[in-house]
């Protein structure tokens, strides 16, 4: 409760400071719109459905691409950890490509897929995949071999050992890789949406882009607020439960 109040107070103070800057009229209201006008824009966009529509479009792209990235990345990471030749090849590739800022995939995606949903999906998958592979790989390689030995004496073999021992034992690594993959995917999708107009759906990035074209600063800031909000929400909904499970079970410090 106290933490909630502290947070509320902080954000209220932030809003107040913003309002004071606007009232002081140092900058033109075209460049620094008031909190109220941003709120009005968001309310209007909600009322006419553009905001929900674009949030939905963006989340669909992100969710689908992210799931594909996980579904491919976790098994690939395990294979990478298990087989030396794969580590020397795919492992190195993953390390290199993870270092590539994910927005760099956008031009390639456009050339390969055109202005299509495929391009968006591709960018998100590339953003997710490499960090998930690397995190899973290091997670698996850091599993204390004593766990596997103990499991073997209890009759656990191959697939059972992978699913019941190696995967849960590397969970702390996998979750942090999932988190990083999410962050990369989110950033690259925004970049792609801002750069590229795709007629099958207007995402948040596109709304941001049009805000700039129209010189509608209230729209630009409003959409940024929404993007930040989604990021926070994802963290709380997607990752916090895992992390608190890990903290509780492993006893790692908060």
């Amino acid at each position: 409760m106290k933490r909630l109040l502290t947070a509320l107070f902080f954000f209220a103070a932030l809003l107040a400071a913003w309002q004071i800057v606007v009232l002081s009229k140092v900058w033109s209201p075209v460049l620094v719109p008031s909190p109220a006008s941003v709120g009005r824009y968001l309310w209007g966009a909600l009322r006419d459905g553009t905001l929900e529509g674009s949030v939905l479009v963006t989340m669909k792209r992100l969710g689908l691409g992210y799931l594909i990235g996980l579904a491919v990345g976790v098994p690939l990471g395990m294979i990478t950890a298990q087989f030396r030749p794969v580590r020397d090849t795919l492992g190195v590739l993953a390390l290199g490509l993870q270092g590539l800022p994910s927005v760099c995939w956008v031009p390639l995606a456009l050339l390969w897929f055109g202005q299509s949903e495929g391009a968006m999906l591709f960018v998100v998958v590339m953003g997710t995949l490499w960090s998930v592979i690397l995190a899973t790989e290091s997670g698996v390689r850091n599993v204390n071999p004593i766990y596997v030995r103990a499991a073997r004496t209890m009759g656990s073999r191959r697939l059972h050992t992978w699913v019941q021992v190696i995967m849960p034992a590397s969970l702390p690594f996998i979750v942090s890789g999932m988190k990083q993959g999410w962050a990369f995917a989110w950033r690259s999708l925004m970049a792609a949406e801002i750069f590229v107009t795709i007629l099958t759906g207007f995402g948040l990035g596109q709304l941001l882009h049009y805000g700039r074209e129209l010189n509608a600063m209230d729209q630009v800031i409003g959409i940024m607020v929404v993007i930040v909000f989604i990021g926070l929400l994802a963290d709380k909904v997607l990752f916090s439960p895992w992390e608190s499970f890990l903290h509780r079970r492993w006893g790692t410090a908060k």
């Binding site: 004593i146 030995r149 004496t153 849960p168 034992a169 969970l171």
Partner: peptide, 19 residues
């Protein structure tokens, strides 16, 4: 390895992800 011979290792080998 077989279930007829169980081992208690030198280091604790309990699985931290299970209660």
């Amino acid at each position: 390895p077989g279930r007829d011979r169980m081992v208690m290792f030198q280091e604790p080998a309990l699985f931290p992800w299970l209660d």
